[in-house]
Design a protein around this nucleic acid. Sequence first.
DNA 1: GAAGTTTGCCTAACACTGTTAAATAATTTA
DNA 2: TAAATTATTTAACAGTGTTAGGCAAACTTC
Lengths: 199, 199
Amino acid sequence: MGSKERIQRLKDENRMKILQASLQIIRDEGLSSLSMRKIADIIEYTAPMIYEYFANKEAILSELAAIGYLKLAKKVKEAKEQEKTPEKQIEAMWLAYWQFSFDQKELYQLMYGIGAPCCEMQKTFQCTDSHTKLITDVIKEIMKDKKPSDELICRKYFTYWSIIHGLISINLVNKGNGDETNQQVLKDAIHGITRSLNN
Amino acid sequence: MGSKERIQRLKDENRMKILQASLQIIRDEGLSSLSMRKIADIIEYTAPMIYEYFANKEAILSELAAIGYLKLAKKVKEAKEQEKTPEKQIEAMWLAYWQFSFDQKELYQLMYGIGAPCCEMQKTFQCTDSHTKLITDVIKEIMKDKKPSDELICRKYFTYWSIIHGLISINLVNKGNGDETNQQVLKDAIHGITRSLNN
DNA sequence: GAAGTTTGCCTAACACTGTTAAATAATTTA
DNA sequence: TAAATTATTTAACAGTGTTAGGCAAACTTC
């Protein structure tokens, strides 16, 4: 019965189509005008069909966010691998994070709830294999002489994250586009925090 | 015709009632479950009546946000006035900002679009009489020996704001409540930036 | 005070939204 | 081919923001 697999593959395809269509609508018309019926139009089904693939609308958004986390982790990892010293790595990683948030505005907003009463933040993803893990590892590397506690590392990560996320949020809401000035503020801040790691 | 004024006063009262009711609903049930009909229920009118006072739902949110800016500016001003040195002032002001965002979670989210596809950010308020003006004035005071350009001051303000707004956003989305660790990160960051103003 | 005009307010409706239950069409199994 | 299962749709519910039309009360003018 090879058709079992064929049917499964078809189901997976439709799942994927739903996600793609959703993201497309969000990109084209904004999150607030994403509707089940519009998704259905694109995938050439009727709205109730979507419920065969996702429990509800929120589940779609949730899954899109999850995909976002994967994409982000990939970008951050690539950025890391192009530098040798931890200091350069951490700058590259945060710049990659920054870049991601502008290349994938909609996804980023979904992931971190800017302008969207969407899914709970995925705490599952925060530990293994995420950009968080990648970055905290480098922080640990930089601070290794001080034998920092996990709590301290976490706090340092938080400090980085806050300023970058803050900058991004402000830019997204203000419809900025990550221009020179902001990049300058960002780099300054990253350097400042990085310097503070070892004194 | 003193009744003209009486009627005007009644209209103003109703306007206020609508705003209060809206804020109450947002606080009790969240922004996403704010509806015109619910507002109407509370003020004991029917939904279409609200359109006599506000062009649409967004106008209500917009006005709530504007009220928020005023409240915030007041708090920041009070904080400033309780300290003498600019260094202490700036810390107090940002802590007041932080406090405001937790005391008035909903308002803050409205003002800065966290979890809300709401109104454009009010650029009108950014210049005179806002917390922004209050804070940049103090930054200017601290840096006065360097004769900084407006652009530099703006960038410094931005740096402060980013990390604080970032911390707040993360806390709001994660449903944190501004606990010790975060306050620590915040104070560290403020000190770090303040120190950087003069070297 | 009566007639006409304006105002305040409501009902009904439209075009949407997410979601569910029931009915129908297509496909697989016996 | 007949029965059972699965895929898909139609119809509906309860909710949303918003608009148009109508009724009744209040005010203005005569």
